[in-house]
Design a protein around this nucleic acid. Structure first.
Lengths: 180, 180
DNA sequence: CCCTACTATGTCTAAAGTGACATAGTCGCA
DNA sequence: TGCGACTATGTCACTTTAGACATAGTAGGG
């Protein structure tokens, strides 16, 4: 019954106890590179996870009108996460607005398309530089079994993705150059 | 106001007049590789597009309880599509369940993870073979300005994506081999 | 002649995700 | 001392997406 977002939260919590706010921050970076959620969604999901006894929390004095709640995985939560990890993932389609634009790009002025792709290329190159710096902070891949293996493997996926994307942008730009 | 799905429909319609059913079929393949929608969503969106005067239709006798409706772009629809094409795309995050699973994979048994990735690798290789066959049917890239440029460019993006994905799967498998 | 698959349009519900609004304490800077 | 940024939880309304249900003609194979 637990949604994918629920498991994303469990995966963050498996690395250490967190407040909902902390989880939302993790969902921006680094988990955000492959799954995101706003804090409103996270608070709601945490309540569902608690009802299902997959997480529990302790209150502590915090800022704001309410006490803060520090969540942690229960044994059932860890078991559920462990089981989900190796279950086959749902086929989820790419939803990519840039590719969709490209699909219709023959209608547009080549010079404007060039600007669009130049911007996108710059964006991917910036991200790539960011990821490469992150990779340099590792001393080679951590062993499987180490939580850091997960971080490194996802980073590596992001690295490959940004490289592929940048190369594709360059290819589109080269096609514009030949034709216009 | 028009949603991305609306523009996806306009982009399909820009290639020729279609019924809602035909658009739904196009949304499965080839547009489906980067945007999808069920027919229920498409019929609703077509009604919105019609209210906005971006599409119009002619009825024709067809099977089923209602007449079939053959939609086509209006001049306003084509203009809207043209303008949208070069507008900067919304930052849309990757939502990738497999990467999320990898993020939590250190909890799981290596042998089961190996099976998961072997399956995923096979899937990507199959898609890659499919795309390569499609690419072979082209006689090099069509010129920009030809509607087929859009088809070819998106195919090329899919090709790069599947290659990156397959390579990442192989890398994860190699890490399991060393450690377990 | 029957059965299945395909064409074709639509409604309805539920889940998932987005973004604004609300509240309020602490910490550092100017 | 005032102001803005950060910590922290939550609600509400809206849009988007997924999937089931409903209906019905035509074409082709066995």
């Amino acid at each position: 019954m637990t949604s994918t977002l629920g498991f994303a939260i469990l995966a963050v919590l498996a690395r250490g106890d967190r407040t909902g706010y902390d989880i939302a921050a993790a969902m921006r970076r680094p988990v955000g590179y492959f799954w995101t959620a706003g804090h409103s969604q996270i608070h709601g999901e945490l309540q569902k996870l608690r009802t299902a006894c997959l997480v529990e929390f302790e209150t502590a004095h915090g800022p704001g009108p309410q006490d803060k709640k520090v969540y942690r995985l229960t044994a059932a939560g860890e078991a559920a996460l462990r089981e989900w990890v190796t279950a086959p993932p749902r086929e989820r389609v790419e939803r990519d607005e840039l590719v969709l634009k490209t699909y219709a790009s023959w209608l547009a002025d080549p010079e404007t398309v060039r600007r669009l792709f130049a911007d996108q290329l710059a964006l991917h190159e910036a991200r790539l530089a960011d990821y490469e710096q992150a990779e340099a902070s590792y001393d080679g891949p951590p062993p499987f079994g180490d939580p850091r293996f997960g971080n490194y493997a996802t980073l590596r996926c992001g690295l490959g993705y940004e490289r592929h994307r940048a190369e594709w942008c360059r290819w589109v730009l080269s096609q514009l150059g030949d034709g216009g």
